[in-house]
Design a protein around this nucleic acid. Structure first.
Lengths: 210, 210
DNA sequence: CCGCCTCCGTCAATCGTTTGATGGAGAACG
DNA sequence: CGTTCTCCATCAAACGATTGACGGAGGCGG
């Protein structure tokens, strides 16, 4: 009976309005889920961070699980669009691969929650999360493989090569380089990003023999 | 003490060893924390899986947080000892680096919870976890850097090169290669491990120019 | 007897969710 | 015009369930 609430739902289709209502809930939830994980984030915390009541969050999101899946879905779609844009100008040579890798790193810098969300999903065994992976992550990987295939010489495992770039980029984006004092150097430090970018360039070039 | 920690003991692959008391609690908690994360694991679930009462778990472990830190500490020490053993026979050349990488992958195969525990720690911002990282993870990284330094040519970022191997290996160990159906191919599939090993060999050789 | 281990019962706190009610923005109607 | 009615978004309060933790009692080998 209560699930009809989501069906009638927020009519805020136009993205012109300021972040309010469901949009604000989604934004706050994205940040919290990325930082604390699913189990570590409570609906009350989301509500408090959004300046709303617990019931209002449930009203807009339909429930914690639905909210989490909506957050993941939006993040994946964002990533998908960024990749599509980068692939539109792709050429199967060294420069093209470098631009593609650069684009993905830029995307992670612009949307720092994505690597963390992906990593949390990575550690989950839930069925609905696996479904999300089959519908978004796997096609994304396949798209990249199909595109860069012509630029990769024989003898290289293209699938694991793509996964290598993703794993390394997400490792840096979500965790960063652990420094001596216990702090981390990651996406919010431009100098560190530049250093990692140089490493990533060299890594991809040598891995693919370009 | 800690006889089962050393390599001579059971490879803790999964068959419930008949350890009792604190040892059993630690084993069960390791498996659950790795699979479900800290927030996703309840003390009652640990107790049930260990065939003990909730209060008994608390008696042996002192509390959930202490139990988690003890699990992490033991896992890190395990890793540290494995690394020390591998570094004892290390030679600063291509064969030595390959053997080192092989040894770490073997360790992750023998102790499949470690990559997942690492990844969960990677995503945490807790102070005691950061302390754990400063006391174990960072020294481990530094040890590897100091050892392989002579084998790495100029122009390669040794720190990120080491992190690359760790990120990729843990990415494969904890998450695996996402297949089309939503399932994953990871450490429990020997054929997939062999395929990943080949990729890892090639990756390290080319990355380091060996 | 004591010391170690285990369990039962219970606690306050927090979890995700639901309910009933409130105020406001429009549409419908007179 | 004013009045009435209907949504929509929000809230305070409470629900049952579960969380981590604790005190105290019982068993048991010494």
């Amino acid at each position: 009976m209560s699930s009809s609430i989501h069906g009638a739902g927020p009519p805020d289709g136009g993205s012109g309005a300021a972040a309010s209502g469901r949009e604000r809930v989604l934004d706050v939830a994205t940040r919290l889920f990325a930082a604390l994980g699913y189990d570590g984030t409570s609906t009350r915390l989301i509500a408090e961070a959004a300046g709303l009541n617990v019931a209002t969050v449930a009203y807009h999101a339909g429930g914690k699980r639905e909210l989490y899946l909506a957050v993941m879905e939006r993040a994946h779609r964002l990533e998908q669009e960024a990749l599509a844009g980068a692939l539109a100008a792709f050429t199967p040579d060294a420069a093209g691969v470098r631009a593609l890798v650069d684009g993905y790193l830029d995307f992670c810098v612009a949307h720092p929650q994505v690597p963390a969300l992906w990593m949390h999903r990575w550690l989950s065994d839930a069925a609905d999360v696996a479904d999300l992976e089959a519908r978004y992550a796997r096609p994304l990987i396949d798209t990249i493989i199909a595109a860069i295939g012509p630029a990769v010489p024989a003898g290289v495992d293209v699938e694991y090569a793509v996964m290598t770039v993703i794993w390394v980029t997400h490792g840096f984006g979500a965790g960063g380089l652990p420094a001596a004092g216990g702090e981390r150097r990651r996406l919010d430090d431009p100098a560190e990003v530049a250093r990692f970018r140089a490493h990533l360039h060299q890594l991809v070039e040598r891995m693919l023999g370009l």
